[in-house]
Amino acid sequence: MFGEVEHELELHVPASEAWDLFGALRIGKLVEEEMPEMFQKVEITEGDGGVGTVLKLTFAPGIPGPSSYKEKFTKIDNEKRIKETEIVEGGYLDFGFTLFRVRFEVVEKGEDSSIIKSTIEYEVKEEEAANASLVSIQPLVKIVQVAKSYLQRNKAAKEAN
């Protein structure tokens, strides 16, 4: 069984600024610092931020779903501003999923505006199809909202100087 969920949010910053955050390791550091209620730890276990980098995400106690998992950067396209990660150990794979991919795409909307499109693609074994209900776009929505606030604070600080 294959599924997909998406979310879009407008960011009032240029696409290049949004991509500087989402296309690199900075987004992992940001969520660890600004979302302790969701993430206990985000650590690099392999790589330098490019394709092949592996992160271990450990969630805060009490968060529904897996307590941790490892994800690998499988695609980083700086031209199209697309970054994809796939779970490679633990997490949803322990619930019968054979694929759990997260994609962030930064779309230029105007000179000072962009859209962040977040997508989860998943595939789950037929006998575990009921576990598809575990998939939620809400954690990505929260991450994007935190990123939007961060980007707007930085923009306001630059304009004040």
Rank of each mutant, 00 (worst) to 15 (best):
T74R: 06
T45P: 01
G23M: 08
I27M: 10
K56I: 00
R81G: 09
R101V: 04
G110C: 08
K75Q: 10
L57R: 07
T45G: 01
H12C: 10
D77L: 01
E108G: 08
S67T: 13
G110I: 02
K72R: 15
P66I: 00
E111H: 09
K70L: 09
G96A: 12
F22M: 14
E33A: 14
E86H: 13
F22E: 06
E34L: 07
V31L: 12
F73E: 12
K70H: 14
F104K: 03
T45F: 01
R101F: 04
E108H: 03
G49T: 00
A24W: 12
E89D: 15
L21P: 03
E8C: 15
S118T: 14
K41I: 01
K80L: 12
E111V: 10
F22L: 14
K72W: 05
E8K: 14
P14A: 08
G50V: 08
R103E: 12
V102C: 14
V106Q: 04
Y69S: 04
E111Y: 06
L21N: 02
A60Y: 04
E8N: 14
W19G: 05
T53E: 11
R101S: 10
E10I: 08
F104S: 03
G23F: 04
V51S: 05
V107F: 02
E43Q: 03
E105W: 06
G90F: 02
G96T: 09
K70S: 10
S16T: 09
E43C: 00
I87R: 02
T45L: 09
K29M: 01
E71S: 14
Y92C: 11
K75H: 08
I82L: 08
M35D: 01
L11Y: 06
T45K: 15
A24N: 15
P66E: 00
G110N: 13
V54M: 02
K72E: 14
D20V: 13
V102K: 15
F104A: 04
T74F: 06
S113Q: 09
E37N: 12
D94E: 15
G28L: 05
L21R: 03
K83V: 10
K80F: 07
N78K: 15
I82F: 12
K72S: 04
G28F: 13
S68M: 10
V42L: 06
E8T: 14
K72C: 05
V13Y: 09
D94L: 14
K72V: 00
L25N: 05
E8W: 07
K117L: 10
A18F: 07
I87T: 13
F95W: 10
F100P: 02
G62V: 03
L30D: 00
R26P: 09
W19N: 11
